[in-house]
């Protein structure tokens, strides 16, 4: 068996059970960021339809006010909330808050910065995103 056969590639890198919730948050931060950028550009294009008058606007609106459109918007809400809450956590951590006191590097070399407070903040971001998505679903599907 060669060393390469053990390589799992991106799947191995993204495995949250191997590197913990911090790695999962790192990957999710990038995925949500790229997703939100894609939505932002699409939203700019979508809203420009108003320059084509009522017909153009109603055409685009009809496209977004479908079950699929609402599901996409729900995902955008979830991505937005996670990206915001986790982003604020990262700013706080980079400011030196929530990182814990420096200590001697003893086996098993658990970084002090990857502490319970950070884990709770990451899980909170995920829970808040789920709650916001449920609220979004209620608002949008309540008006279908």
């Amino acid at each position: 068996m060669t060393g390469d056969s053990n390589r799992e590639g991106i799947r191995g890198m993204a495995n949250p059970r191997r590197y913990g919730i911090e790695r999962f948050a790192y990957i999710l931060m990038r995925i949500t960021g790229l997703g939100l950028l894609a939505y932002f550009v699409a939203h700019i294009y979508e809203t420009s339809a108003i320059l084509r008058g009522r017909a153009g606007w109603d055409e685009v609106l009809a496209m977004t006010q479908t079950v699929e459109g609402h599901i996409v918007l729900t995902l955008v809400i979830g991505m937005c909330v996670f990206h915001t809450v986790n982003g604020i956590r990262l700013m706080i951590v980079q400011g030196g808050i929530m990182t814990g006191k420096p200590g001697r590097a003893d086996y098993p070399y658990t970084p002090r910065s990857q502490n319970a407070r950070n884990k709770i903040a990451i899980y909170s971001a995920i829970v808040l995103a789920a709650v916001a998505m449920m609220y979004g679903l209620t608002v949008m599907f309540g008006e279908l």
Partner: peptide, 12 residues
């Protein structure tokens, strides 16, 4: 993107 979006906002 800023130019394209601004065009919509300014025109409207």
């Amino acid at each position: 993107v800023i130019a394209y979006g601004s065009r919509t906002i300014f025109a409207m």
